[in-house]
Amino acid sequence: MENVKRSKISMSTHEAIWGYVFLSPWILGMIFFVGGPIIASLILSFCEWDLIQPPKFIGLDNFIKMFTTDKRFWTSLYNTFYYTVLSVPLGIIGSILVALLMNQKWKTVRLLRTIYYLPSVTAGVASAIIWMWLLNPDFGLVNYALSLFGIKGPLWLADEVWSKPALIIMGLWGVGGNMIIYLAGLQGIPQQLYEAAEIDGAGLWGKFRHITIPMLTPVIFFNLIMSIVWSFQIFTQVYVMTGGQGGPSDSTLVLVLYIYQHAFKFHNMGYASALAWVLFIIILIFTLIQFKFAGGWVHYEGELKK
């Protein structure tokens, strides 16, 4: 073995070189599959390109068309916001509530956790198909359950008013994934805090309001950002449930489906890139806003840290 200390290059340079060597797969990946494509898609968004003719620079035309004449763009934007605005808060509240339940000391709690977590790993084509069947207007279990309460269920995926709520309900089936994150967060809260609060006479609600929630805020913050990023990217469920159409009457045409249609069905690579960049910027703005306001509500444990 070569003695590194005797070599001309210093120990720290040696270490740095090896660091970059081990990092190199990621650096190459960043250049070819992340950074490069991001810049390329920005350039493409100012072009018109059908993959057959050479790309043609058209300046801001894609963006002008998008914001002024393309009604489907606005529809897809509206649908994506609708989905996000409802599914993210409901998902976060739902997963926190389930996590609180799963943090109890019951004998069957492990089995319960498994059951709640299970649907989140089945996300994909199969679960979309299961929900198409559950939401079948005439023979689906959901409408049957509603009928037991005397409610006539809607047409769900065949009704432009109810198609988006159907997607949201289906999404909520997957709250188990986030539940695990909150559960880990709950288990990280030092028990002494609760004991101290009890001595001060705090009840269940008081402990929840003044200890659990503040201590969970870093997790909620992280989860909120990722949930918004993910919900803006909803695609598979919509594609499977509507056969790639986003129907009925574009009521489930979400932004990513619209990007997909332009890129891989109509071969408008330039326009699709412009749409993708708009999606990117929206997500970026949302993320930055959250970071800006994080100081106001996210509680980082300072002196509490063990």
């Binding site: 992340v34 494509p37 991001i38 990722m226 990117f280």
Partner: peptide, 17 residues
């Protein structure tokens, strides 16, 4: 932070590549 980049932004150039 690349976790927050939607894949759709890189999808089209990567496809072309």
């Amino acid at each position: 932070s690349t976790m927050m980049i939607p894949v759709q932004v890189t999808m089209i150039p990567t496809f072309i590549l």
